[in-house]
Write a protein that binds this DNA or RNA. Structure first.
Lengths: 251, 251
DNA sequence: CTGGCGTTTTGATCTGGGTCAAAGCCCCGG
DNA sequence: CCGGGGCTTTGACCCAGATCAAAACGCCAG
């Protein structure tokens, strides 16, 4: 799910937000200009709603910086996160009028948006945009299926280890310019509260807290403050996650 | 996830299997002819493997009749179903060389396949195929996210009711030609063993059995034999599923 | 009709993670 | 420096669903 493609493209996309994975990896300059004309930015503070499930959604876009999450909520308040949107991820569905999920800014967030109608028109005329979007959606589908295994069959400890692994990988993919390898300790900041982690993993926040403590006591990770994580041995963490070996950075 | 689109298209696709949702909803006749040239059929018996995770996968295709399932298995044998492929559903991923999941024929199964390379070439030249595939993939992604809520937050009873609801809906969508409505009792056959249901829902087969018994005792469903299900009141079943009201047949 | 095998049900018991409750920690504003 | 509110941790207890075990139900082959 984090394959060489995302790496390549994030490298192509340093400057212009509309070159983010979403649409532009193969755009010609005239297409880029057309996109420039219909794009605009939106900023959100941590905790703000980007859109409510069921609301009219007249834009699509991609995350420029920060983190957003997609969540579903049942009438009695049980909530499940169903997507974690990191920089370069795409939001919104061409061809659908209303939002299917709540979208929340988990941290301060900047999005690059396109009004839906012009974007759809452009998509109709520019075949590779649909192709690119298809690739991205297939990646997301794979990620979702990976999560179904986590949610359905893993223990609390494995769930936490899985989440840490994913965040570490995404973080690595964003930060490493060249192939700085998987060796040595890995360090990153948790962008999620315990509650958000619980919502992602189908656990309670108490269980999340207990399992993080347990992983710390067992030396799998160490913490500075509540959020700053060091993973001395990534292999070990991935074993704890029950992950199908293979490492997977750039598979 | 079961919207008017799938209904419309299944209506367009009565005769030719390659017109199944996958690729042909908007094909011109010359495109259909080209597709005819590269398609072939494969048949499987119930229980047979279609492909193993990690194997080279040189085709894509769609289910013509029967049911296939996508599953993931951990080293210690825990397995999670991550996709249930009913007639008209698409299998395989353009642009990927190896299968990411085990694909198993859950019942006797007929698939209509295309060798991957010619199909990809055709996709490159025929923009609406990518667009169509994008729509389908987005539908699947929505279904996957719905399942994440089921797996992460629902009780065993709600899980069973959710699965029954989905099967009933899909079955209705396949069978009803016109809008035969949601009124009256709904009858269908369970295409899955208790074990397969358990794998779908992240439960054990014993729990599945117990919960089905409980739903029967409470009059939510009734059974003839082990597999033939009657739902006297669909509304009631959906309440049990904890579903966000709205009915959803044709939403 | 009988035996055997795969599926399903039912029972008894155990336990991982949920629930409820109470501190502890940390940062920010006054 | 103090107080308050949002996170986070920790503890005590409980229960939904897992696990282990055995019986019942088809159903087909002989």
């Amino acid at each position: 799910m984090f394959n060489e493609r995302s790496l390549t493209i994030s490298q192509e996309c340093e400057e212009c937000p509309i070159r983010h994975r979403a649409v532009c990896a193969r755009c010609e300059t005239d297409e880029l200009e057309r996109l420039e004309q219909i794009k605009y930015y939106r900023k959100f503070e941590a905790g703000q709603m980007v859109i409510w499930s069921g609301d009219k959604m007249d834009f699509v876009g991609s995350v420029v910086s920060g983190i957003a999450s997609l969540t579903q909520t049942m009438e009695d308040g049980r909530t499940q996160m169903v997507g974690l949107l990191l920089p370069s991820d795409f939001v919104g569905r061409p061809g659908r009028a209303t939002a299917a999920y709540d979208v929340v800014a988990t941290t301060d967030l900047v999005m690059c948006c396109f009004r839906k109608t012009p974007f759809e028109e452009m998509m109709a005329n520019t075949p590779h945009i649909a192709q690119r979007l298809l690739e991205m959606t297939l990646d997301e589908l794979d990620a979702a299926r990976e999560w179904m295994l986590v949610l359905g069959r893993k223990t609390a400890r494995e769930k936490i280890a899985s989440l840490l692994t994913i965040i570490a990988r995404r973080d690595a993919t964003l930060h490493l310019k060249a192939g700085s390898g998987i060796e040595g300790p890995i360090v990153f900041d948790l962008p999620l509260t315990r509650e958000a982690m619980a919502d992602y993993l189908g656990l309670t926040l108490e269980t999340v807290s207990r399992q993080i403590t347990a992983l710390r006591k067992d030396g799998v990770i160490s913490l500075e403050g509540k959020r700053h994580v060091t993973v001395p041995d990534m292999e070990r963490l991935m074993e704890e996650a029950g992950d199908d070996s293979d490492g997977g950075l750039l598979v």
